[in-house]
Amino acid sequence: MDLTVAASELVGVVTPAPTAGDSLVAVLSGRVARSDYGGEILLGGTPLHTIEHVQARKNLLVEPHDTDLFAGTVGSNVTVGAGPNVDERFVDRVLHASAAIHVVTVHSDGMSTVAAERGASLSGGQRQRVALARALLTQAPVLVLHEPTTAVDAVTEHAVAEGISSLRHRAGDGKGCGFTTILVTSSPALLAVTDRVVVLDSDGVVAEGTHADLARSDERYRRAVLR
């Protein structure tokens, strides 16, 4: 595949074969040894494998589809890694953008609600929203999200799509926020808010355009996305 994602772009990636999405996310996350994939992954023009891991993670955060929460509270799972001087107003924006605010408000203890190991005390949709809030709070320059809304209802999914777009790509003055986001997903709601969508299969990028254009013109895209 040959794919360039520009700074500040919100890009959707659709893989009709789910394993292709899994592989792409695994490579971008650094979980695949350099010797096990061909070609180059460049982050800001620098080969990803040459960047020290901690520094690479600060600049490129990959949130996998199956992500674990740790034993603690909902609040500690959201703010872990955010540092001691976290902006409470931004935390509130993140909770709304990820729809995790509903996880907080449904429990009387709010952010102090106990979260069991691996998030076992929360529903699948609640775990997804808390994990998404945690990822959004990092404000990573490049954020890759892999199917972040599969366990939520359609209304929540549309709210999350709008929340991600607004938080990372539209500042209060209507200007872009400077972040780059890649959504590896088959969700029409998420794809509808992207700047463009690329379709990948074993031959690489086989289609590219807006969600609306591809939905009208590409049968493979319709089969993969419109359900």
Rank of each mutant, 00 (worst) to 15 (best):
V94L: 02
G176K: 03
P84D: 07
E52W: 12
G178C: 04
A7L: 12
S23A: 15
G21T: 03
D173T: 06
A215Q: 04
S112E: 05
V114Y: 15
D87H: 10
V86T: 12
R168W: 14
D213E: 08
S121N: 02
C177S: 07
A161Y: 00
D195Q: 11
L60M: 05
A159N: 14
V225Y: 00
T138C: 09
G30P: 13
L24F: 10
L214R: 01
K175I: 12
L190G: 11
S202P: 04
L183T: 01
T67F: 13
L3V: 15
T149Y: 02
A224F: 00
T185R: 01
M1Q: 08
V198I: 11
V144R: 01
P188T: 00
T15H: 04
A7R: 07
E147Q: 09
T67Q: 10
V142K: 00
G30I: 05
V130I: 14
V106A: 11
H211G: 00
R129E: 00
S35P: 03
H158K: 14
D87Q: 04
S166T: 10
G125M: 06
D153P: 09
A135C: 07
V130A: 05
G176E: 12
A207E: 11
L183M: 06
V198S: 02
R34E: 12
V160S: 02
G176Y: 05
A100L: 05
A120W: 08
T181Q: 04
V199E: 07
A97L: 01
G172L: 14
I101M: 09
V206S: 13
A171D: 14
E219L: 15
A215D: 00
V62I: 05
R227V: 15
V193K: 14
G45S: 05
L24G: 03
T46A: 06
R216F: 03
A6R: 08
D203A: 04
S35R: 15
E147V: 05
G174P: 06
V198E: 04
R129W: 00
A151R: 04
A99D: 11
L60V: 07
R134T: 06
V142Q: 05
A135Y: 03
G119N: 13
T150C: 04
G204V: 09
V54I: 15
S112R: 09
D203L: 08
G124S: 15
L145C: 02
A189R: 07
L43N: 01
E9F: 04
A17S: 14
T79N: 06
G209T: 06
T113P: 08
E162F: 13
G204L: 14
T105S: 05
T79K: 08
A56F: 06
V106R: 09
L43T: 02
A99K: 00
G83D: 07
A140G: 03
S166D: 08
V142I: 14
S186T: 11
A159E: 13
G81H: 12
G44D: 05
A140P: 01
V14I: 00
T19D: 07
V193A: 11
